[in-house]
């Protein structure tokens, strides 16, 4: 099936274009569907069109969309106007909550940050759940293994001694040292783009290491040695093969691979 692009959006490149005119175009969305086997009995006679429990299938929807619409808008259009059973997570809809990471045309992205006009619309836009975590329904995956790895790396400030009455001092330079990794929204786009994680679900994965980095290089923190010990594990930081998928996938622009390399180096040199 091929969708034709009726009108090309000029893209609201300036204050004068786009916003008022709202150009529209056709988009075909090809979405992977899955209904678990224990989804519960469907009311008699009302299961028409529902995916067969336990089996994957692809559904296509052709939609009329507008200039500033994102993949999330297209998914909402399906859910609200065509098929209410299409299931995905979303909340803030502008790239800060991390709910709607999914595989869009083979790349991990946030649906709310991916503008349709930036995709090749001459072909269907392929939407799948992120890989490496169990699929629960349609685009929803089980996030528990992901958060379990995060919790393991002691993702909190570790300090000893008496607390100062006022704030701890930290220079602007020291603060800058770990700025990049504070941006993480735990969307799992990096971890589920990692080939090592796909083949070995025990691997901590990039997101957990990013969050370890955020504390290891925080001048106020005193838990670096413990965290490095945890990440020195066989499922730890050495499993990274530096494929840079994670850096490419990060919707927050974090240099994930670089952060992982810095953690590796800290482990060897014991400087942080």
């Amino acid at each position: 099936m091929t969708a034709t692009l009726e009108k090309t959006a000029p893209g609201p490149g300036s204050a004068e274009s786009g916003l008022g005119a709202v150009p529209s175009f056709q988009v075909t969305l090809r979405v992977q569907r899955y209904l678990p086997t224990d989804a519960g009995d469907l009311p008699a006679g009302q299961d028409v069109g529902a995916p067969t429990p336990g089996e994957y299938r692809w559904d296509e929807f052709t939609l009329t969309m507008h200039g500033t619409d994102r993949v999330l808008d297209a998914l909402h259009k399906v859910k609200w106007e065509h098929d209410g059973s299409l299931t995905f997570r979303r909340s803030c809809a502008h790239g800060v909550c991390g709910s709607d990471a999914m595989r869009i045309n083979g790349r991990n992205r946030l649906a709310c940050k991916t503008l349709l006009k930036d995709l090749d619309l001459s072909k269907p836009v392929v939407v799948e759940p992120i890989k490496g975590l169990p699929v629960l329904k349609d685009l929803v995956v089980d996030m528990e293994p992901f958060f379990a790895s995060y919790r393991e790396i002691m993702p909190f400030l570790v300090t000893t001694g008496t607390e100062p009455t006022k704030e701890r001092l930290q220079s602007a330079k020291e603060r800058e040292r770990f700025d990049d990794t504070t941006k993480c929204i735990l969307c799992a786009a990096c971890t589920t783009s990692c080939p090592v994680f796909w083949t070995d679900g025990q691997y901590f994965g990039p997101a957990a290491i990013v969050n370890a980095h955020r504390f290891i290089f925080d001048s106020r923190d005193e838990g670096a040695a413990q965290r490095l010990e945890i990440l020195n594990d066989k499922e730890g930081v050495w499993r990274c093969r530096t494929t840079f998928n994670c850096t490419e996938a990060c919707p927050r622009g974090i240099e994930v691979t670089k952060a992982i390399q810095e953690v590796k180096r800290a482990m060897i040199t014991r400087t942080f």
């Binding site: 400030l157 607390e163 704030e167 701890r168 001092l169 930290q170 220079s171 602007a172 603060r175 925080d218």
Partner: peptide, 20 residues
């Protein structure tokens, strides 16, 4: 409330003297 958050580890922007 701000000092509590700082002690919990919140990375506030800093003044040249290293304060919040």
């Amino acid at each position: 409330a701000v000092l509590d958050l700082e002690k919990m580890g919140l990375p506030f922007n800093r003044t040249p003297e290293g304060r919040i």
